[in-house]
């Protein structure tokens, strides 16, 4: 997980890999992430041919199918710009699993490794590369944070998200019990083992709500849909928000005027 971050001038251009979940199910979060990047003076490029990182097939044991999908993404980022992903688990897929997926093909493996080196989860990019200096806007708020497991264990995203929220001043982060525990999404797991998944999602929703926070935030669309879907089915009004949206609506660059 320890990663070397390039020193030197801030990047002027980045690619945005939205992920299929954000594209189709929470596009506002993708839009807000792009606007946050642009607020930092960065040109954001959205390769039109992007689809999905291939993770659902990869983790289900369908490596050939995952490779077919991943192969398309490999060609989307010709310039040596950072690739920003608003999801730790999709970022982890490209960063850690693409090189393994193309291990048998020298040329593709080199391409996958080069891509792997410049893939950043959104909050990681803000904290580690842009080293942003933000402050909170509006009223003070209490939120809880859920981090997806691959984001936590493959990308260290929970630390970056915490760092960003800690900058804001008016946002109090409330810790929930069993914070590092999985919410039970696990891609196709939620469908294949609905009872176990429901138990995990229910516990996560309870723990987040029990903090007394007004909402919870998460940088992963999958977890958000899982926990929010669970809460909605219970007719509970407590909800989550994508971290990118929360940050777009509740922060400004420090030292700037409105």
């Amino acid at each position: 997980m320890d990663r070397h971050y390039p020193a030197g001038p801030r990047p002027t251009d980045v690619y945005f890999f939205a992920t299929c979940l954000v594209d189709l199910f929470c596009p506002e979060a993708g839009m807000d992430a792009i606007q946050l990047l642009e607020r930092e003076g960065i040109r954001v490029h959205f390769p039109a041919d992007q689809t999905c990182c291939g993770q659902p097939a990869y983790t289900s044991g369908y490596a050939d199918q995952a490779r077919a999908v991943a192969r398309v993404q490999l060609d989307l980022f010709p310039n040596d710009w950072p690739v920003i992903v608003p999801s730790g688990s999709c970022g982890g897929m490209i960063r850690h699993h693409y090189p393994k997926l193309f291990a048998d093909d020298v040329a593709l493996k080199a391409k996958a490794e080069a891509l792997s080196g410049r893939v950043f989860e959104l909050t990681e990019f803000f904290v580690k590369v842009l080293k942003v200096n933000w402050k909170g806007s509006g009223n003070s708020k209490k939120v809880a944070l859920h981090t997806s497991c691959s984001a936590r264990r493959e990308m260290g995203t929970h630390l970056h998200a915490r760092e960003l929220l800690a900058q804001l001043g008016n946002v109090e982060l409330l810790n929930h019990s069993h914070e590092s525990e999985c919410c039970g999404f696990g891609g196709t797991f939620a469908v294949r083992q609905p009872d176990i998944s429901a138990s995990m999602a229910g516990d996560k929703a309870d723990a987040l709500k029990e903090t007394g926070a007004e909402k919870f935030v998460s940088a992963d669309g999958g977890c958000l849909m899982n926990i929010d879907g669970t809460l909605e089915k219970r007719r509970d009004s407590f909800r989550g928000e994508h971290l990118a949206s929360f940050l777009w609506h509740n922060t400004e660059r420090a030292g700037e005027k409105e």
Partner: peptide
């Protein structure tokens, strides 16, 4: 299995 304990996954009105 998804809707056993969750509301259905529904695409947004507009994609990103």
């Amino acid at each position: 299995g998804w809707t056993k304990s969750r509301t259905p996954l529904t695409p947004a009105k507009k994609s990103l």
